[in-house]
């Protein structure tokens, strides 16, 4: 088997535990796997960012609480830190359009989902953050949709998006001041898990969450691959 990132040979470890299943198929070699850092230790209970002391939530989330009387997002859970290797991977995956690279995240994305959202009843729906039609033409695929498709409650489409500037090209201040680009196409009456690739300021996810809450959705959670 070859690593999807560095194209080096990777040989799955064989032990008594996985002898009969012949080991899981590996997509990344050990070196590349270790280069990605999973968020560990104390994290913000709201946005999943790394916290040092025994804080409960981070200062960013406090600001969000102040801004809305009640934060539209229940919480966000992310898997990876946004380190240098992750940035390189995201550039190739998202901006250069290497669709196949998403399989590197598949296993961990599914497993973490099961562990984190097990408390929710089965009546929950998964929604991916959509791209505007202009952007999808440019990129060819929607990375959030690919991730959401790995999950077990089937992804549903309730919201669409109008074209706006790239979030990643803006400063924090500009990002926080953007207008809500989302529109509802159907009504939702179940709790929703929003899926996206990166949580940076939380603006985009909260836009979507606000919209859903206004239209009768009981609760909105977020599940993202990376917390930057």
């Amino acid at each position: 088997m070859y690593c999807v990132w560095c194209d080096g040979l990777c040989i799955p470890e064989m032990n008594w535990e996985n002898l009969w299943s012949m080991g899981r198929t590996k997509t990344l070699c050990n070196q590349c796997e270790n280069a990605l850092k999973v968020i560990e230790g104390n994290r913000c209970k709201k946005c999943s960012c790394q916290l040092k002391e025994k804080q409960y939530i981070c200062s960013d989330c406090m600001q969000w609480e102040q801004r809305f009387k009640q934060d539209p997002l229940k919480f966000n859970y992310s898997i990876f830190n946004y380190n240098e290797r992750m940035q390189d991977m995201v550039t190739r995956w998202k901006y250069r359009g290497d669709y196949h690279l998403s399989c590197a995240f598949e296993q961990i994305f599914i497993e973490t989902f099961k562990n984190t959202f097990a408390f929710l009843s089965k009546k929950v729906c998964v929604i991916s953050i959509p791209l505007s039609s202009e952007r999808i033409l440019e990129r060819g695929f929607n990375q959030a949709k690919v991730l959401a498709d790995y999950l077990i409650p089937k992804r549903e489409e309730f919201i669409t998006r109008v074209y706006s500037e790239k979030q990643s090209k803006k400063t924090r201040k500009e990002r926080l001041a953007t207008k809500n680009p989302f529109f509802l196409t159907k009504k939702v009456n179940k709790p929703v898990i929003l899926v996206d690739d990166i949580y940076t300021t939380g603006r985009t996810l909260r836009h979507a969450a606000e919209l859903l809450l206004e239209n009768g959705c009981p609760a909105v959670y977020a599940y993202t691959l990376i917390r930057s």
Binding site: G97, D98, Y99, H100, I136, L137, G140, F141
Partner: peptide, 16 residues
């Protein structure tokens, strides 16, 4: 690898 193409609505090969 294969990628679902948005303009042709089909899966296509691309070079990685």
């Amino acid at each position: 690898a294969n990628i679902p193409c948005n303009s042709c609505k089909k899966d296509h090969l691309y070079c990685r």
